[in-house]
Design a protein around this nucleic acid. Sequence first.
DNA 1: TTAATACTTAAGTAAATACTTAAGTATCAT
DNA 2: ATGATACTTAAGTATTTACTTAAGTATTAA
Lengths: 119, 119
Amino acid sequence: MQTHSAALDRTFHALADPARRVMIERLLRGPATVSDLAAPLAMSLPAVVQHLAVLEVSGLVSSEKVGRVRTCKLESKALRTAEQWISERRSFWESQFDRLGNMLAAETFALKKRKRRKS
Amino acid sequence: MQTHSAALDRTFHALADPARRVMIERLLRGPATVSDLAAPLAMSLPAVVQHLAVLEVSGLVSSEKVGRVRTCKLESKALRTAEQWISERRSFWESQFDRLGNMLAAETFALKKRKRRKS
DNA sequence: TTAATACTTAAGTAAATACTTAAGTATCAT
DNA sequence: ATGATACTTAAGTATTTACTTAAGTATTAA
């Protein structure tokens, strides 16, 4: 379990913006140009290019320029890594206790704590 | 598919910081006090409290104060929502094409584009 | 060759982030 | 009552974000 990961920082940060998620959504349907990505967004082209840079640095998107057109596409690896981080932790958490077990664990924890304090 | 979600913004943003992920990691093992969460982190207590606020606003963590001690615990709902957003998109993307199909789709796209341009 | 297209670069700004230190305020233990 | 504990609040700062407008630079089309 590696929680200290600059890659995860970048991926989650990239996903934390609605404009960038809209761009990802568009790329799910297939490759797109910068203009294509900009079309549904209420902001200037340079702003979109900056969002694109965040997506590329995170590894979520790659792009290539041919002629004057830059074509962007999704890279599933980063998405998979982020999903895995969450998934591993969520399933650990959910399997560890059911609703009742959770309460029992909390009691145990409180008890141990009291003992530790006294010593 | 709802990509415009302030809740997702907050959850992904909360997950984008290594200190906050360490705090989550600690909470996977069970409830913890603010001091417990602060212990492994190289920063002041107020800084930790600020991170905790981010986690609480995102819904990833809840806390309750009893006496002078605030006890924090994980809430799996937000984690599940974030995981779902990624999972839905990744599986859509991955099922849509295999490596070869992907290339074919890219060709088709380029072709359509050329036609559009000519009309 | 000229004009339009598709970005790109640069520079500036307002707001949000991630901290800090200093000074509180309730509890709890003695 | 007094001091120690466990936060809390306030206020300040450096950096990063998320934009903007203006002015480029290649390509492509006419």
